[in-house]
Amino acid sequence: MVSPILEIKELNKHFSISKNWFKKKGYVYALNGINLSVYEGETLGVVGESGCGKSTLGRCIIRLLKPSNGEIYFQGKDINKYNKQEMKKVRKEMQMVFQNPYDTLNPKLTIRMILSEPLIAHSISKEKRTKLIEDTIEIVGLKKEHLDRHPHEFSGGQRQRIGIARALMLRPKLIVADEAVSALDVSIQAQILNLFKDLQEQFELTYIFISHDLSVVEHISDRVVVMYLGEIVELAKKELLYERPLHPYSQSLLSAIPNPDPTENRERIKLTGDLPSPSNPPKGCKFHPRCHARMEICEKVQPELKELDGRLVACHLYQ
């Protein structure tokens, strides 16, 4: 069996809430006991509604956020124990593409300067920098003459290509894409998704693709993780999940995907109520207040994530 390039064990991230500088009010439980493996060369989709913790998970993996506790094994080494100097070496192998490229590109710098920054930080010589920058900008579908322009001179799709180029500069092995196409027009989304696929094949990349758009995730992913209120409720191969979701939350998400055929009637599962506060989550199964299939045990006992029919699912219906 192929060993995972990334393995997460009992990962937690809690944010403290303070009334003032001296008195803490409580915690926001953003991630709770996440266990996950990502295999080399695959695309793992992460889905869930806003507030489920998917972006926090991506940032903890890259160590833009320091987890409260848990283990993150990248290529067999627990990087959660690394200090800043040790993490700097790992940054060559792990990069991130963000949702809004304009917010992540310095408007005062030219594209050449922006792409130079990671290379300078890792002491790449000037000659190599020039070649890498010119090669990479063409790989993502832009031209060398674009390098001397500023971010405001580009469209949203072009800026995202620049963001992808910056992530590629150090030739990483793992890229976390956090809502990387959600701010783009649908036609541009397709181009960027195809670019992601081409780059994966060319550079043997592994992706963690975070999105709230289930159609996009279906297009690009090999396996899909469904998150709810900081926990994984289902993990399955794409084909299994989209053909027959097991968890009631997964069923409700997939039933909301727009159907291109107006003559076909699809039963939609509407969730009742709002997403509970992550600072005061429900007891038992966190989804039970909104679940159409809840039972008495759901209010008292939290279900474990267990294997069933070639997937992992956390639901009392199957336990």
Rank of each mutant, 00 (worst) to 15 (best):
V181N: 10
G157S: 14
G58E: 06
P107K: 15
H316A: 02
I61W: 05
K66D: 15
Q99V: 10
I175H: 10
L308Y: 11
I257F: 05
P4H: 04
F196W: 13
K286S: 05
R311P: 00
S155G: 14
M87I: 12
R171K: 15
Y249R: 11
D185W: 00
H150S: 03
P118T: 05
L305H: 03
I139E: 02
S123F: 11
Y318M: 06
Y29S: 07
Y39A: 00
A121H: 11
V176T: 05
Y102M: 14
N20S: 02
D213H: 08
E40L: 11
S187L: 04
R159W: 12
N35H: 04
R166L: 05
E243K: 15
N265E: 13
R223C: 05
F74P: 15
F154S: 13
C60V: 10
A314P: 14
T272A: 08
S182H: 10
F203G: 04
N32H: 09
Q189V: 01
Y318W: 07
P67N: 10
E138F: 10
K144L: 11
Y29K: 10
G76E: 06
I120T: 12
R166T: 06
I17Q: 05
L57I: 06
P151C: 07
E296L: 09
L31S: 00
P303Y: 00
G48E: 09
S279Y: 01
L317K: 08
I79E: 14
I175D: 02
I210Q: 12
V225M: 00
I124H: 12
K19Q: 03
A293H: 11
D309F: 09
G70R: 04
V28I: 12
S252C: 00
Q251V: 03
L184V: 01
T263H: 15
D78F: 09
I72P: 15
N80P: 12
S277M: 01
